[in-house]
Design a protein around this nucleic acid. Structure first.
Lengths: 217, 217
DNA sequence: CGGCGGCTTGAAAGGCATCAACATAAGTGG
DNA sequence: CCACTTATGTTGATGCCTTTCAAGCCGCCG
């Protein structure tokens, strides 16, 4: 069985890593904030969001995890999870005991580099959240999605065509924008023929222009 | 010699890890963006910032690294550094070859958990950058600094008293605020007796109120 | 002591949030 | 499978927070 760890699961005797599978429906919760950290989760298909609710009762999304990505590393140092995690669509995740994960890593040192690679990747992921304008962040967000979906899912996706795995509301909650702003700016991109949208289907028509927008031109 | 890796450097035969020391003066550069990734860096004293310059020529700070922290993980997956790195004050860093680092980790599996712990910590660090208002981000920033400096440096620091390692300009560039906004809000905190400032010396007078502000009350 | 970088304070402009009302899509139950 | 209900997306008007521009002050280093 293939999974987000790649090398991990291709090897027969390593499949025992996976202690359990979770089938989640949209809006179903994988675990809550403050739950004890015991497992990592590899997403087979679907997507997850981590979120918390602030003092005003507003949801703030801290991370998005897509097909073939791994969620859970950020809880290692606390021993418990910081956020709640919810499925954004029909989602299948493999549960991997952190304990078994450590064991395996010790017994197969060649996997170490792979794991450091994956964690390093996550450290750099949301760099674009620092961009200042709504246009920049949304542009960078689309490019990020496109790349992440393309890397791991060549079947239904190209670098230019993909299905939005999140609602505008969630995009807003992730990027720190109002839903209305997301809608307005996406409409504007559409009007300028930079992207095409119908329903959740996104087509990046002028990827260079989009990159320019993300960079602040 | 003690360093950010803790367990690493306390053990004599592991000191060979450190290939070199760098003495940096304020504004001196450790390496530039796109330089090849070869080493991790443990900060003995001082502080570093990672930054890039956007299309408009404005500097954007992506990370702040303080005394006893380790910088470099985020470049592992690319093979080259994403950002330039500059010293914020007189700074001493230990250079650790990533190659030697991997070797050591393989030969001393008990260090694995420690490293995963440290990397996990960094994944959670800048969660507060998502906060929406300037007050919230600045409040959270002060609390974060206070905690990070306190953990690793009980000598000149308490949880409530510390020296600002950065200029207001850099705070702004890190939090995504104009320098003037940083100044204004800090003045406001001061007027409300939530903090005291003289020069770079910060005193958190009402840490609970500050936590409240960070949470959005 | 002079000069420069860093900080402060005011006034004006702009981007985004908020509120509101509506349109459309999706999901549910009969 | 249709009718209803709820969730999601659209569009406009208003206000606020933060940026920007400008000018002056302060503290530090040579």
């Amino acid at each position: 069985m293939q999974c987000a760890f790649g090398v991990f699961c291709l090897n027969k005797d390593e499949v025992k890593l996976i202690s359990k599978h979770h089938h989640l429906k949209r809006k179903e919760i994988l675990h809550s904030a403050n739950d004890k950290f015991k497992n990592l989760y590899a997403i087979q298909y679907g997507a997850l969001k981590t979120y918390e609710t602030d003092a005003a009762g507003n949801e703030v999304i801290h991370g998005l995890y897509l097909k073939n990505e791994v969620y859970g590393y950020e809880a290692i140092h606390r021993g418990h999870h910081l956020f709640s995690v919810e499925a954004l669509s029909e989602t299948l995740v493999c549960e991997i005991s952190y304990h078994a994960f450590l064991e395996l890593l010790r017994s197969k040192p060649h996997l170490l580099e792979r794991i450091l690679y994956l964690m390093s990747q996550q450290l750099a992921f949301d760099a674009y959240l620092k961009l200042s304008t709504a246009q920049q962040r949304l542009g960078a967000f689309l490019l990020d999605l496109s790349a992440r979906l393309f890397i791991t899912d060549h079947k239904n996706t190209t670098e230019l065509n993909f299905l939005l795995p999140v609602t505008y509301q969630d995009i807003g909650r992730y990027l720190g924008l109002a839903t209305e702003t997301v809608s307005r700016i996406l409409s504007q991109f559409k009007k300028n023929k930079i992207i095409a949208i119908n329903n959740k289907h996104i087509h990046l028509l002028q990827i260079d222009k989009l990159k320019g927008i993300a960079k602040g031109f």
